[in-house]
């Protein structure tokens, strides 16, 4: 089978990967060099290879961890979004759909409200715990409904739980000024000023999540054909759901714990990735992760550059604005591939 059309399709795919790779490289270089205190790429390279110059502190102490954080968080959110849309068959599904982000936020606010926790490290572990609890809750409701085949009640239950958690957050925030202070800094996702002590556990969870995600790719490909055909192809529904939901929870929870609830990437990266590489999850999941990582790094860098020193613009804000414009352009340009 090597009809010309097929060959063209393959070339386009390869080009998409080259494009994504280049974009990632540029984003990483940009993230390392640009900022309130621009450093020439050569100097950065020198500092990376031979840590002895003055700029080391900036590079190793701030830029490198921040870049790694951006790659991890963006990648996790992109993958989680593609998983969530595949699992629910709904283009509006984002990784926060099962209450993961709201659960994390609620835990952070509760920590500030009840226990007076304000440190970044405490927030991080609280967020991780909250995300896991919320996700288990939604999955529990779905199991209770005994209708794992149908993703619609799952999505609706997730939305309902998310709304409930958000309502509790708003309640606490409005009745307690210190919670509001903790919350309004937390709720705008950002890569800056985050404590890195909890990076190792979060990283470990994220890696387990990513492995599970790729283990779920074949099941997702079957699920997009409908649950009946999927079962015919030998899928065990509950196992496919459990693996997928665990992967979503772990990746999203670690991302949220590290950077706060960063919206939008999980929702839109899969759409952009689908336009680039098509709907096969073996390609879609990595592409969506790459798109997410690139987007987050670029937006973070832009936020640092615009802020120009004193007050950088949080990446969540840049992301929503720049990402929104880019996303609209993609949606207008391309022929839409429905799920």
């Amino acid at each position: 089978m090597s009809s010309p059309a097929f060959a063209v399709a393959r070339r386009v795919r390869v080009d998409a990967w080259v494009l994504l790779g280049l974009a990632l490289l540029l984003a990483v270089v940009g993230s390392l060099t640009l900022g309130s205190n621009p450093v020439a790429p050569g100097t950065v390279l020198q500092a990376l290879l031979d840590p002895s110059t003055d700029t080391d502190a900036v590079i190793w102490g701030s830029r490198v961890p921040r870049t790694l954080l951006g790659l991890l968080v963006g990648g996790c959110l992109g993958v989680a979004g593609a998983l969530m849309q595949g699992q629910t068959g709904n283009p509006l599904a984002d990784p926060g759909l099962f209450g993961v982000s709201s659960g994390a936020s609620l835990a952070v606010v509760l920590g500030a409200y009840l226990l007076g926790f304000n440190s970044m490290t405490a927030s991080l572990f609280l967020a991780l715990g909250g995300a896991l609890v919320a996700s288990v809750l939604v999955f529990g409701i779905a199991t209770l409904s005994r209708d794992l085949a149908n993703p619609v009640p799952l999505a609706i239950a997730g939305t309902a739980v998310t709304a409930l958690l958000n309502a509790v957050i708003s309640f606490l925030v409005l009745t307690n000024a210190s919670s509001l202070e903790a919350f309004r800094v937390w709720v705008v996702g950002s890569l800056g000023g985050r404590a890195l002590d909890a990076l190792p556990p979060a990283l470990a969870l994220a890696l387990v999540g990513l492995v599970l995600a790729f283990a779920n790719a074949r099941s997702l490909n079957s699920l997009t054909l409908g649950t009946e055909l999927a079962q015919g192809l030998g899928e065990t529904l509950w196992r496919a759901r459990l693996v997928g939901l665990s992967a979503i929870t772990l990746t999203t929870a670690s991302a949220v714990a590290l950077a706060g609830p960063i919206g939008f990437i999980g929702l839109t990266a899969p759409h952009a990735a689908r336009a680039l590489v098509g709907g096969n999850h073996f390609r879609l999941l990595p592409a969506s992760g790459l798109v997410g990582a690139v987007t987050l790094l670029v937006c973070d860098t832009v936020g640092r550059v615009i802020g120009g020193g004193q007050a950088e613009v949080p990446v969540g804000v840049v992301l929503a604005t720049l990402g929104g414009v880019a996303f609209i352009a993609i949606v207008r340009r391309t022929k839409l591939a429905a799920l």
């Binding site: 509006l92 709720v187 705008v188 919206g263 939008f264 929702l267 839109t268 949080p314 969540g316 804000v317 840049v318 992301l319 929503a320 604005t321 990402g323 929104g324 414009v325 996303f327 609209i328 949606v331």
Partner: peptide, 12 residues
Amino acid sequence: IGVTAILGGLTN
């Protein structure tokens, strides 16, 4: 979704 995100970013 895109427009909502942009406006939400501005609001935040």
